[in-house]
Write a protein that binds this DNA or RNA. Sequence first.
DNA 1: TGACGGCCTTGATAATTGTCAAGGAGGTAG
DNA 2: CTACCTCCTTGACAATTATCAAGGCCGTCA
Lengths: 235, 235
Amino acid sequence: MSNTHTYPTEASILQLLTPPQRNLLEAKSHQINLNCHEYLFEKGDSADHVYRVNKGKVTLSRLMPNGEQKVFKVFLAGGVIAEMAVFMQPREYPMSAHVDQETTLTAYSYASFKALFISNPELSLQVISFISNRVGQLMNSLDMLTQVNANQRLVMHFADIYSKQKRSGNRFTLPNTKKVLASQLGITPETLSRLFKKLKYNGLITESGACITIPDFKCLCREVDLVPSIFKSAH
Amino acid sequence: MSNTHTYPTEASILQLLTPPQRNLLEAKSHQINLNCHEYLFEKGDSADHVYRVNKGKVTLSRLMPNGEQKVFKVFLAGGVIAEMAVFMQPREYPMSAHVDQETTLTAYSYASFKALFISNPELSLQVISFISNRVGQLMNSLDMLTQVNANQRLVMHFADIYSKQKRSGNRFTLPNTKKVLASQLGITPETLSRLFKKLKYNGLITESGACITIPDFKCLCREVDLVPSIFKSAH
DNA sequence: TGACGGCCTTGATAATTGTCAAGGAGGTAG
DNA sequence: CTACCTCCTTGACAATTATCAAGGCCGTCA
């Protein structure tokens, strides 16, 4: 589970900044090093910084009503963490972030962002657009997770990963362990294992290590009763 | 299903405005009347306006992969519609809004909001906060709908409604039909009916028309394996 | 090397939820 | 008043998913 190659990262607030604005932010940033099993922050901590992963891996998770730890998201190099949390009120991280390998990050303070926004009204507008889009995506996920079954969720997740990894052909790499994947899909590892088994048995996917190949995407969609048009919203 | 009494409304962007800002917006607004079975907008329409419900009821829904219409939300008098959609890119409504009774609304244009934000950087900051909070709420809903069972979702929904209706005692009123409620919870009407039946049989809730009474909330939580602390996030 | 501890898989079984079919209650249009 | 129509309920059954238990695989660490 090493990640020497970099994955394309999702859009972040940082990309809305012009080079001068970005320099201003970088000038006030500082570096952080974390060792295995350390926490970047815990749920409830004052949300004073946005972090960018330079090397390593950060896992965001939260405690569920049943007492289990649910993985919300995993950030690799390039990922930007807590870009929403610092603007929420009360300004507290809504979940915990820990690392299980040596990780280096850049920390940008809430105050720097605030200063940038105040002095750049057009930037603020872009940020409002950006976050509104995130709201739209979340509403889509919300339907997705309630209206479709586990099989369909898995395929949609494949499409999601695939669209973020602009690599050759019809292959992509699972960024996490299957246990984590199951947690993200809201199913148990056992159920996930069985879904994989069935898809492989039917020749709809091929698995070699963490690498998945999908010979015919439309065929896969048909199998699980999904219209391919859904994937326009993926990205 | 008349709604002569008003329900407390959720927080909206409009409430962030100072009186002068609000006046500016109102000056450029216009009124809209809709009759039964008319559409306010349909999914994909250019999202040029935010609407405020003055009288009547507006239902937001979207077409699911399986071809069914899923109700996302119902707005009564005071509700503010599409306050996020107008800032998304592409600027299109992500779902459809229709009315099934005579309804009057006030329409505020995207351009007016944009002008306000550009000339009031502090307002923009507040809006960023506001939307970020919405993101946090949606992430909570997301967990909720994937990690907990239908029984627990129902009880959490009760808590949500209750917290928004600051009325006497341990009673509250269901704002929608049970069919709509089932759709919002992501279950079938049949399943919902059976959940109600079981809760009533065990004396955990009493039902009289659209009015629900919960004698002992903690007891209800215990029954469905929920820690009451979850409800701090409600509202 | 061997022991331990994750993760992944598989089987057997149970719990949850959906589907299909039918009927009652209540409202509305003709 | 009657004929619809929709919502709500209930029953029987099927599909989906979780739970419990066990074993294999593959690391790390002593």
